[in-house]
């Protein structure tokens, strides 16, 4: 049991390294996603202008931009395998759960890179008051984990369908609405000097629930 656990941890690590390496080789996924995130940020910023102390709108806009960036890019990890016809080989060398977990970790790193560029730029362009960094980062991190967990599972499903891109956004949104609601409320609360405990616990519970269900469901993903 211990041996299988350690070998699957090694498999997850190997998948993650493989993902990072093949992404770094071309970087087209990352470049496209960054460009998309900055474009949607510029679109939002241009459309509404600097918002100053309208923190209620700011927190909504921030998560809309992050949601768009996630919906545009997080299906990439699975779709790339289908389009490159490499999934069969991958399935030969690793269990579905290891593949799913490896891709989830990769998506988390991917999202973190996008946010590292987008969030500072957002704060700069939209002219909001400085956030309470600790609480802001807490909501941001937990929201991203929940976002990545839900998106990775849905992307594994939609990679095997027709019309993947459009379907990914549509099929992910129902799973992302609880994340969006809690993350927006939490971001708003920290700006207005409130606590974020309730929102943080919703996000943790949700991420844990999606993650747990993912572990059960990855086994059923590929059988043909």
């Amino acid at each position: 049991m211990a041996r299988s656990a350690s070998s699957s941890a090694a498999a997850v690590w190997a998948i993650l390294r493989k993902e990072c390496r093949s992404e770094w080789r071309t970087r087209y996924g990352l470049n496209a996603a960054l460009l998309f995130a900055i474009t949607s940020l510029a679109g939002v910023s241009f459309a509404v202008g600097p918002l100053g102390d309208r923190t209620d709108i700011l927190s909504g806009m921030l998560w809309v931009v992050l949601l768009f960036a996630a919906l545009a890019s997080l299906s990439h990890a699975f779709v790339r395998e289908i389009e490159g016809h490499t999934l069969t080989l991958l399935r030969l060398v690793a269990t579905p759960t290891a593949i799913g977990l490896g891709k989830l970790l990769f998506n988390l790193i991917f999202l973190a890179v996008i946010e590292a560029v987008t969030v500072p730029l957002f704060l700069l362009l939209m002219g909001g008051p400085p956030p309470k960094w600790g609480r802001f980062a807490l909501v941001l991190i937990l929201g991203s984990v929940a976002l990545a967990a839900a998106c990775t599972l849905v992307s594994a499903i939609i990679a095997q369908t027709r019309g993947r891109g459009a379907l990914f956004a549509g099929a992910s949104l129902p799973l992302l609405l609880p994340v969006l609601a809690a993350a927006v409320k939490g971001t708003r609360a920290q700006w207005q000097g409130g606590t974020v405990g309730a929102e943080a616990s919703i996000l943790i519970a949700y991420a844990a629930a999606v993650f747990g269900v993912s572990l059960l469901l990855y086994d059923h993903l590929w059988e043909d």
């Binding site: 849905v154 609405l177 609880p178």
Partner: peptide
């Protein structure tokens, strides 16, 4: 999702996975 999957068995399996995943979001 159902309308976008080819093959009866695969459609049933993928939509069942999605349904089970969405089930998690419902109580929230």
């Amino acid at each position: 999702l159902r309308s976008a999957v080819d093959g009866e068995e695969r459609r049933a399996r993928l939509s069942a996975i999605y349904s089970a995943a969405a089930f998690v979001a419902v109580p929230f």
